[in-house]
């Protein structure tokens, strides 16, 4: 859905993004993270055509954004952190303006606008001027505007800033639902715990370069070196420890409240084989699986490595 190759963006003599490659597939929610000035916003603005890349290709839903940007914009929904609205329009008029801009036929526009308002719980506010809306309602109206043309790619820049816990929960559910419907979502946020709950992949940027990107599990393994597994053993604890030691790829196990934690240097298939051997040896395993490292943990480790 989003395919960026060898992207470079310069602001006068400063190189803001250098040789960046990134892909976001349908159904994927990609979290773009990095410290301030890393180039996250520049990447987003380049995808949206708001800054002209020096070189490199950006393809959105199969459309080359440098060749046919207007066609590409039909497939993109963008939501910034501060939702700008026309204060002199009602909610319905605001949606109708952008529905018309995105080429929604006039015959079906009215219904589409009312449906979008209903989706975000603003049906009762259809004829209310947007200036009279609360911050949360403005954010919800912006979500309705973003989703109205049913875009295949959604770009969210700090989407959760300034909205209440219920709004954040709704947003998270909405993003998951969009991914389930096959939409590609690129989201940038400083609240990493929140990204972790909604992202299936992560891209970490530092000083205009892509440091690491891919599915959260792969990135975690790549960055942290080994995967940490947790196992809950109901019976056969000694056999479990013996087999673990004999495997050779497992680290020293440690008791935790929810089971035994141990680092494992093997692949996912190796871990599956280990589990099979445990079960065949009569160990009663109630739970066995990788404990993925938090985004914050990964981000801090990447940052420390880059800075060193």
């Amino acid at each position: 859905m989003i395919d960026i190759r060898d992207l470079r963006v310069d602001y006068d003599r400063l190189c803001a993004v250098q040789d960046l490659t990134l892909s976001v597939a349908p159904g994927e929610v990609c979290g773009l993270i990095g410290p301030n000035g890393a180039g996250k916003t520049t990447v987003m603005r380049a995808i949206l055509g708001l800054v002209e890349p020096t070189y490199g290709s950006i393809t959105v839903a199969g459309v080359d954004m440098r060749e046919r940007p207007r066609d590409g914009f039909r497939h993109i929904g963008f939501m910034p952190d501060q939702p700008p609205l026309y204060d002199d329009l009602t909610c319905w008029e605001f949606l109708d303006l952008f529905a018309a801009s995105y080429g929604v036929p006039s015959a079906s526009r009215d219904g589409a606008c009312h449906a979008a308002l209903e989706q975000v719980g603003l049906s009762a506010k259809a004829n209310t001027l947007t200036i009279e809306l609360s911050r949360g309602m403005r954010q919800r109206l912006m979500i309705a505007k973003t989703l109205l043309p049913d875009p295949e790619v959604i770009i969210l820049d700090e989407p959760a800033s300034g909205i209440d816990p219920q709004g954040r929960s709704d947003l998270k559910n909405m993003v998951r639902e969009l991914a389930r419907r096959g939409r590609a979502v690129l989201v940038s946020s400083h609240i990493l715990t929140e990204l972790q709950e909604m992202c299936t992949s992560v891209a970490i940027m530092e000083r205009g370069r892509m440091v690491v990107s891919g599915p959260v599990g792969d990135v975690s393994r790549h960055v942290m070196g080994t995967t940490v597994y947790t196992a809950r053993i109901l019976a056969g604890g000694e056999t479990f420890l013996r087999l673990l030691e004999s495997d050779g790829r497992a680290g020293v196990p440690a008791e935790e409240a929810d089971g035994v934690r141990f680092a494992y240097a093997g692949t996912t298939a190796d871990a599956a084989d280990l589990l099979t051997r445990l079960v065949q040896a009569g160990v009663r395993v109630a739970a066995f699986g990788p404990r993925e490292s938090g985004l914050e943990e990964i981000f801090l480790k990447v940052g420390a490595r880059e800075l060193s």
């Binding site: 949206l48 055509g49 708001l50 207007r70 914009f73 963008f78 501060q82 801009s101």
Partner: peptide
Amino acid sequence: ETGILDFHRISPLP
């Protein structure tokens, strides 16, 4: 100033 012009810039409207 509000940034809504950018929304028009990234809409399919010429």
